[in-house]
Design a protein around this nucleic acid. Structure first.
Lengths: 202, 202
DNA sequence: GCGTGCTAACTAACCGGTTAGTTGCACCGT
DNA sequence: ACGGTGCAACTAACCGGTTAGTTAGCACGC
């Protein structure tokens, strides 16, 4: 008894492996992740991992891809309301710290060409923002790709993988942070052409 | 002949090790970094590394610390001119991509308590920005710690370690990027209290 | 001759990946 | 009803290259 293990069920086993791999890779990355540990956590034989996923790197890629496409469904991009999209990404990042770490590992450990798909997704978003600008729903003060990178950076700057001392929000501050992000993105996304004049001391 | 190696000079050897370690750790992190490779790149015996730096993790810490304190000297913090400080950080990040990667590895691989010093440095900056706000040189629309994280995130969002598809600047765009960052930070740092009203379509 | 700077050779453990084999279930002919 | 056969799911044990870390000692300058 105790731990239930659905015997002889390949699909369920694959699922357990993927779940365990997410935890392992999120914690230690590809180089630091241990296949043995994944197998043990998934309560399966190590060899099954190689049968189902070829090798360690492929397992990592699978885990990343599988989880990444969940985002696009869960948090649809709203080019006409960038501020709230930023808030949505912020929420998602807070709810999925392990995924954020996985993303960070990927940026450091994977070859650049492995990110081709994400670059494509980015370009799609850029096009959408460009349209939103032309429609007048987004200010033209900044280029769309700039706005997008800013938005994503802001929304994820306080997540686990950020190198800059966010002394991890003690829960209450998270809401305030969220509001500030909305306002900041709102401010930037509504800026129009022409340099904003400097505001100096009264 | 060929490669000159200053024989019997501990200080120079240490220096070569540190330089080689920076390259290795920057490329592969702690778990992925190989001591053998570092020794070979530094043209010294592997054992010297253990004599001078105890173990791999300590070597990493030393490399990081040594290089990190260079920043504070090279790029002094100017709380009264956040926009230009952002530009300065942006330049620095572009000039030291390996250091940026090292920082990213550190955030992922090192224990949180290893970042204590950086948190302290951050708090110092926060205090400085608070003063700048009271002096009227920085807008009070956002909290100082928020402004700082935003600034750092923006300035480094396009660096090598960022997970969000910055399709690496083909040189010419870097200057435009720099200008945009200055304007963005200027905009945020000059925002005053009271919610900015939404700007919708004409 | 003695200590500092350095090296070659070694070890023990680890770890990704493989091999060879077992278990249990579905389906079949009789 | 039943043995047997084929196959998918799973396992235990192993392999060999790699890796962090060590030991014992050499050589050169003082």
């Amino acid at each position: 008894m105790s731990k239930e293990r659905p015997a002889r069920n390949a699909e369920a086993t694959k699922e357990r492996i993927l779940k365990a791999a997410l935890a392992e890779f999120s914690a230690h990355g590809i180089a630091g992740g241990r296949v043995d540990r994944i197998a043990r956590a998934a309560r399966c034989n190590k060899n099954l991992i190689y049968i189902y996923f070829q090798d360690k790197e492929n397992l990592f890629k699978t885990v990343l891809l599988r989880n990444l496409m969940r985002i696009h469904e869960e948090r649809p991009f709203t080019p006409n309301d960038l501020a709230n999209y930023a808030a949505s990404v912020f929420d998602w990042a807070r709810a999925n710290p392990d995924l954020m770490r996985l993303l960070a590992w990927s940026a450091l450990e994977q070859k650049p060409e492995a990110r081709a798909e994400r670059v494509a997704a980015f370009r799609t978003k850029v096009a959408a923002v460009t349209e939103a600008q032309q429609a007048g729903n987004v200010g033209t003060g900044f280029r769309p790709d700039f706005l997008l990178v800013v938005l994503m950076s802001l929304a994820t700057a306080w997540s686990v993988a950020s190198p800059f001392a966010p002394p991890v929000d003690p829960k209450a501050t998270a809401d305030a942070l969220r509001e500030s992000i909305i306002q900041a993105v709102q401010l930037l996304a509504s800026a129009e052409d022409g340099l904003p004049k400097r505001t100096k001391s009264p």
